[in-house]
Design a protein around this nucleic acid. Structure first.
Lengths: 209, 209
DNA sequence: TGGTTTCGCTACGAGTCGTAGCGTAATGGC
DNA sequence: GCCATTACGCTACGACTCGTAGCGAAACCA
């Protein structure tokens, strides 16, 4: 969200919260129908039933708007305890794949990542509202696995952070690449194969490392 | 390349091959300076020293042009025999990371992938000119490792193809995610960690699988 | 030389961008 | 209840990009 509660709580007409929701929903709708490149802010404003100027008062541009619209999709990710590390990984990967199967996520996410390569502020916004927020799933899953004895406890916190980053890049990267580049579904069969390789790699690395 | 030799070999003034090279180089230059969204075909034509109409006669639009411009960057990938599977993987991953460190690859590649989510023809073009062409590296590396005895020979060709696809998605996906989303360099330390996990996963999976 | 295709150039309507200006609506402070 | 303040809807605007059409000149082949 770009519209934070201002520090200087001034008087005046408050911003319509319904408008925020309507704009983000309209953005996702436009992403589905038009894709990122053909999406125009004027069209989004019309769909949302607000004036174009209202939209520009809240978001700096198309990139920021799409990041917020897409970020909401990833908030539904959760990590229910399925008993084993393998089951936990398979579960969250399938959830992630389900989100990426939605057209508004596919076109929107990759487009803003592409734009982010040339815009540090946008990259930070993506990290803050999408990436870092989901990295907690990896941390949580590891903690559970260590509590179960499936993975050895980590004593060096720096090493642990590096491992979490590595796992996150491998999991998210593989699913994204499978879905968007190879354009094949990350179905249960694929997830099972992937989880087996990842799990053996993690257990082996922690033994030998 | 979109400009194939026409089946009907007609007479007339031939297309300038220098123009093709100049346009693709100008496209990469514009990608560096402007990024994908601010890149205009008129600007590319000016940089290349050709008329805008010439550019439109050869490429259908921005997407196709950028795919061709980026595809050339990946042709330099090779797989010299470094003696062990681990060394081979580390070598090719570092090469891949070096390409993705270049700004024209970063913004261009992700942008066309994003557009490809809504354009089957473009997806096919990407697969043909970039993805499939590099998948040979995985096939080659596996064959070498099997010849060395580092990996067991694969008897089921269907299973082998699935494994190759999986490895390709994991390797390419992890490097891309590390570089473009996490925005951290895929340096030697990271590549070493990644290779160790992947290798243990592959060896373990082939033993248990 | 004639036929064919590409070339550079100019011009065009259509569409989008982001902003400015204006009057109106909805708040909080007094 | 009145006023200052802020958000809203609406219109209009210059600037830019798009993709195409039309033209004469250039470069090839027979």
């Amino acid at each position: 969200m770009q519209s934070r509660t201002p520090a200087t709580r001034a008087s005046g007409r408050p911003r319509s919260v319904e408008a925020d929701a309507a704009i983000l929903a309209a953005t996702r709708e436009a992403l589905v129908e038009l894709g990122w490149s053909k999406l125009t802010l004027g069209d989004v404003a019309t769909r949302a039933g607000v004036a174009k100027t209202t939209l520009y008062r809240r978001w700096a541009g198309k990139n920021e708007l799409v990041v917020d619209a897409v970020a909401e999709l990833f908030d539904e990710l959760a990590l229910p305890d399925r008993g084993t590390l393998a089951a936990d990984i398979e579960g969250v990967v399938l959830q992630f794949a389900a989100i990426l199967a939605r057209p508004e996520a596919r076109s929107g996410l990759m487009a803003v990542v592409a734009e982010g390569t040339r815009d540090e502020a946008l990259r930070e916004r993506i990290r803050e509202s999408i990436v870092t927020r989901q990295k907690r799933l990896v941390v949580e899953g590891r903690a559970r696995a260590q509590a179960r004895g499936e993975l050895p406890p980590e004593n060096d916190p720096v090493e642990a952070a590096r491992t979490v980053d590595l796992i996150f890049d491998v999991v998210a990267g593989a699913v994204v690449h499978r879905t968007l580049v190879s354009a094949e579904p990350a179905d249960e069969e694929w997830v099972r194969d992937f989880t087996r390789v990842l799990l053996l790699g993690l257990k082996g690395a922690s033994q030998a490392g």
